[in-house]
Nucleic acid binder design. Sequence first.
DNA 1: CTATTATTGTCGCATTGTGAGACAATAAGT
DNA 2: ACTTATTGTCTCACAATGCGACAATAATAG
Lengths: 246, 246
Amino acid sequence: MRESSESVGQNTRGEGYLQGLATDLVIFGFHETQLKILLLEYENTGLLGLPAGFIRDDENLNDAARRTLTQRTGLGDIFLEQFYVFGDVCRHDPQPLRSILVGKGETPPDDHWLLRRFVTVGFYALVDFTRAIPNPDALADRCAWYDLAALPPLMLDHTAIVQKALDTLRANLDHKLIGANLLPELFTMNDLQQLYETILGQKINRSAFQRKMLALGILERLEKRFSGGAHKAPFLYRFVQESRYR
Amino acid sequence: MRESSESVGQNTRGEGYLQGLATDLVIFGFHETQLKILLLEYENTGLLGLPAGFIRDDENLNDAARRTLTQRTGLGDIFLEQFYVFGDVCRHDPQPLRSILVGKGETPPDDHWLLRRFVTVGFYALVDFTRAIPNPDALADRCAWYDLAALPPLMLDHTAIVQKALDTLRANLDHKLIGANLLPELFTMNDLQQLYETILGQKINRSAFQRKMLALGILERLEKRFSGGAHKAPFLYRFVQESRYR
DNA sequence: CTATTATTGTCGCATTGTGAGACAATAAGT
DNA sequence: ACTTATTGTCTCACAATGCGACAATAATAG
């Protein structure tokens, strides 16, 4: 699939896209007891930022966000949801985008559409770390996972956007089936508990957690696992089919 | 205060406003065991719709929504929060807006900015029914309360927007102090319970509700009331100061 | 092959939260 | 004074939760 974003730089008026509106994606992954998010690196500028996207004239807002998600991860059928709209005037700072365009060898006019004020709709996504294939967009040089607990400074207000996404994730932990989207197909009860502890940032009682998760009736217990670590081999679990993806 | 929206009709290019972005407000009130919302009436067209607003070039998104809220209700210091962005292409239908402009004696050109596609940020507000003074905008003829349980057909996708706002209200009922914004300064425990029952659409056990509310420590009990109905006079309550408004 | 050791699955107990009913207190009307 | 309906509070049963204890078990050490 050809990425239309290849042209957003040369397309100085942003023709074919909604003006002044964008999406910012906080894409969560989970690996080795760490929550991670995908960031884009802009090498000639030293800037780091969230994956972002624009909305085509003839495209639904949510579809635009999902298109961007698929372009960055190679995955389509995963959890993705709006969480907040960032619309303060003080967000507007054309400098980072100008640096990025210049770093790409372009000389953007002062009224380039990407240098104007943008309102951005924040989305957060939950992806299986082992299945995602990070892929930069036309303006970025790399796309890579970063540990949420040791996040470097981000461009614009992206740090605040990440914080708000994390708050939303924590608030929705009980209601939505978050584990089903952040864990691989098969996992142990300990994997699940470590995920919850990492998201909430606090310890959870082991037996109570196990009891509660099993009582929900959304887990399917398989045969035991063997190769892994020392000591008693735990069961493997899988989410029952209807519980994935919402 | 002069209402800038007086000019959005004649201002055919929408100069000074963000293009293609608007706010829609679901303003909840509570009166006589009924949940109500504010609607605008457009007399020459038979149309009904939610109060909406635009965002100035130099204005924060949330401030724009609050400005519109104040213009419609006369109230500023009340609960107001984003709940969803409606950005589907199929929302776009220039017909209702055209009818409204024509009904106002204007002849909008086909490329009038109000007839283009709009993405709208949904906000919901909680107001004290007894304090609000409904006030229409420049395009509407009346602004009035409508019973949520018997809502007439609304223009565009406004019925779906109201439904989504109600879903959000129910989901947030425990976390946010919703009673503090929908009830008058002083109220009885029965008032509070009827509000919760109306929002949730189901009966609540009386003693359990009272026990739980008192345990939250957010209520201040005053002297008894007298004049009201027959039978034992209930206590009056008030929310402790810090609990209002978030 | 046996003992050690750490981890897992499960159970029991104490505490807390919740649903439902009961009762006395009370304020208006008869 | 009596009736009646509503309120504030209590008790009881039951469910949910936090916390510790226990046996089962799988890899490793001797």
